[in-house]
Each structure stands twice: as C-alpha cells, then as structure tokens.
Design a protein around this nucleic acid. Structure first.
Lengths: 220, 220
DNA sequence: TAAAGCGGCATTGTATGCAATTCGCCACAT
DNA sequence: ATGTGGCGAATTGCATACAATGCCGCTTTA
C-alpha cells in the first residue's frame, strides 16, 4: 500500500516530465547531460511536442537549463550556487521544524515520533536504503506539520534540486547513528513545542548533512 | 537609463511569458481569468504553440493553474494559502536581511543607505508610484546583498506570486512614513552587521506590509 | 418533473512539416 | 601556423492539421 497517491499521468507530457525528473534526481541522467528532443522522442516513442513541453517544465523547476536554439542540459550549478542552495534548504527546513513545534496536531506528533522510532530500528538492522527512504518520510512529516502548503512545496522543490548532487548518502553505518541522534534533538524540541530549539536543531542537522555530500566542484 | 538589463526576448514564447506575467502581476489579468489558447494566439498574432509554452512556464512558476484538457486560469489561491505565502515571504526576506548584515560589501552598504535616503525624500514629495518603484529596488538590494543567488531567486519569485493580491499599496501617505521607519530599523541593523536584529526588523516589516494588503477571501 | 444517459461541439493534446538560428568545418588570407 | 570568414548540416522554434477529451444541452425514461 502506497501512501503516495501517484495518479496515473493524464497526458504524455506529464508522464515524460515525471520520468525525466526521476532520472535526473536519481542520477541516471548526470548533470551536464544534453537532452536532445529527437533522441528523447524516439526513445519514448512519441513526437517532439510532448518532449518539448516536459523539458520546459523541468527548466522552470530548475532541474534543467535551456537557452534559445540550444539543446537543454541537466542543470550543473557552480559550487558557489550549490552552497547557496544548501544554505537556503537548511533555513527552509529549519523554519518548517520551528513551525511544526508550534502547530503540529497530536496525531502528527505521534506519527513523527513513530517514524523516528522506526528509523532507530533500521540503524541496528543496518539497511541504508530503507533508512534513506524512511528518512525522506521523516522530513516530509515535518514539512506537513508546519501547516503551510506553499512553504512545504518550496522546501520539497529545493530538496529535489539538490538531490542529484548527493553521492553515497549514508555510506557508512556510523552516519546513520549520527543522523538519528541529530533527528532526536529535532523531535524532542518539536514535541516540547520549543520553536527556537527546533529551528536550531534542524539547521544543524542539514548543515551536517551538507558536509556528507561531495560538493560538486565544477565551474559550470 | 534602466538598471535592469531587460534583454530583448529571443523567442516568441519568452516574450509572451513576460507579457502575460506582467499582466497577471499588474492585475490586468485578474485571478480566476481563463487563458484561452486560441484567443491569446489571435490576440498576439501567433500560433497556439508559443502560447502553450508560455502558459506552461507560468504554470510552473505558480502564476497560473492548469489541469489536463482544461483551460489555464490565473492562480486564485485560497486565503489560507495566501497567508502561507506571506509567511514564507516574510521569512525569506528576513533571511536575506540577516545575511546582508553579515555579507554586504562596503559598496553594497553605501548603495543601500543611498536608496534609503532617496526613499526618505520621496515621502516629503509624496509620490506613491515612485516610492513603490524605489521600494522594490530597496528590497532587491537586500536580496543581492545576501550573496546567495538561489535564495534571491526564490524570494523574488514568492514576491511576484503575492503581487497580484496587493491592492492600493501605499494608499495613504502615512503608510509611506511608517514603511520608511521600518526600513530604517532594517538598514541600521544591516549597517551595524547585527544579523538577528536585521532578521527581526525585516520580518516585522513584511508582516506589517501584509496587514496593508486586502487579503483575498475567496474559497477558490 | 427530475435525473440519468447520450451525442454534438468546443477546446486541449499530439503529430508533422517548414522556417530560423546555431555550430562546426573548411578554405583562405595574414 | 594561426586566426578569420563563410558555407552547410543539424537542431530548435513555430505553424498547422488531426486526435482525444471534457462540457453542455437534449432527449428519454422512471
């Protein structure tokens, strides 16, 4: 049973957009890869029109970059810009955590605590992939707990744009335990309704996560 | 002389996107207005293709909403969502101000001070339109002073999405003076390099601005 | 009389063909 | 030998034609 109501794409362009976004975020399409309209059209068995539409939407969301009369390429931000994206992400997530401390309902707080406990178990099992999945769910609960749909969207979008530049997250099992300890401070602050503490704890967590990334060092 | 390097649009779709965005942000196209592809194509003397492209990009930026096989409509957020957008905008602008306090160069600080002084003069002249324009420039200086391009883009985008729901900003001249007094606290904190004070002052300013807006009260 | 089903019409989604622009290659001059 | 100019091929931008879907009014039946 999937909690995500992934509705079937109602148009070709929508399906292509989702699939291409997946490939970019997952790393199958590496930063700098060129998105040739004809190649993609042949590959997916459609005409150029829906391909163009999908590419334009990805461009607007920042995953790809386009220039007039040039092929689109998967976004390849400079190291400076990537740092800026991390900084913004840290502040957005911290804001969500702070608002969650003030606004989460009882049910939401219980769900967060339960998710946190599930993550604790996964440390001992030592399953980095499952941990990574549940970690995403953990953060999503905090976005939702802020009770601000616009903020949640912006935070999710920023997270997606940074995602292609993660490499081997939770490579070592020690990181799992550390991550959980950082989460613990966030959860404690949220459950106690302490907004400033929640903000500080989440900001520290994300900045710590940043250090785990291999920051892309290209010059565009 | 324009400080904005408004490059000539290199494609029809780009030109249409800019023009439609202008009309939405300025209020010429009111929230809820339907964007019929054929009508727009006839009106601009082009085919549906570039019109579609422009609409899709506007959809991705949040200014219009689209559903499959339905005409696009100018975004008409619920009152709750609009409040969320204001809240996010307040935090984003506050973050920019805080970072500006730490990172602005000497030249940037002098430019901010100069812009602030120009605004002071406009109070006495009593020119709400010019004040509004220069006010935008004032805030833009702070976005730039944060030295984080991604953050600046997100903040500008949020500001644009909120813009259609402003009505009669700076209606009364008293608001101009109040606004300048709030700016003054922001500028003082930034020039002193006091990040927390800058954050607090800007947050208070934006929340005050929100009160001046006529919040749209529709239920979508 | 009202509700449900059906069919025509209008609008969006997709495919295809043509025009415009960019880039690479080659010749040629310095 | 190297830099510059122009020509050609390939790709994107745009226009147009066709297909598919949603809307709306009508008819029909309970």
């Amino acid at each position: 049973m999937s909690l995500l109501a992934d509705t079937a794409p109602r148009t070709l362009a929508e399906g292509l957009r989702v699939q291409l976004a997946d490939e970019i975020v997952s790393g199958a399409l590496e930063p700098g890869a060129v998105l040739d309209e004809m190649n993609l059209a042949r590959r997916f068995g459609v005409s150029r029109t829906p391909v163009r539409e999908a590419i334009r939407q990805l461009s607007a969301s920042g995953l790809v970059e386009t220039r007039p009369h040039r092929a689109a390429v998967v976004a390849q931000p400079s190291a400076e810009r990537l740092l800026g994206m991390f900084e913004a992400m840290a502040e957005l997530e911290a804001l969500c955590a702070g608002l969650s401390a003030e606004r989460m309902t009882g049910a939401e707080r219980r769900a967060l605590e339960a998710c946190h406990e599930d993550l604790r178990r996964l440390i001992h099992i030592g399953d980095p992939l499952r941990f990574s999945e549940l970690n995403e769910a953990f953060h999503s609960l905090i976005y939702a707990g802020a009770h601000n749909g616009y903020l949640a969207e912006q935070t999710i979008a920023t997270r997606a744009r940074v995602r292609p530049f993660r490499r081997a997250q939770f490579r070592n099992l020690g990181r799992l335990a550390n991550s959980h300890a950082e989460h613990d401070r966030v959860v404690t602050a949220i459950l106690r309704g302490e907004r400033p503490a929640a903000v500080a704890a989440m900001r520290a967590h994300i900045m710590r996560v940043r250090e785990e990334y291999e920051i892309y060092l290209g010059t565009r």
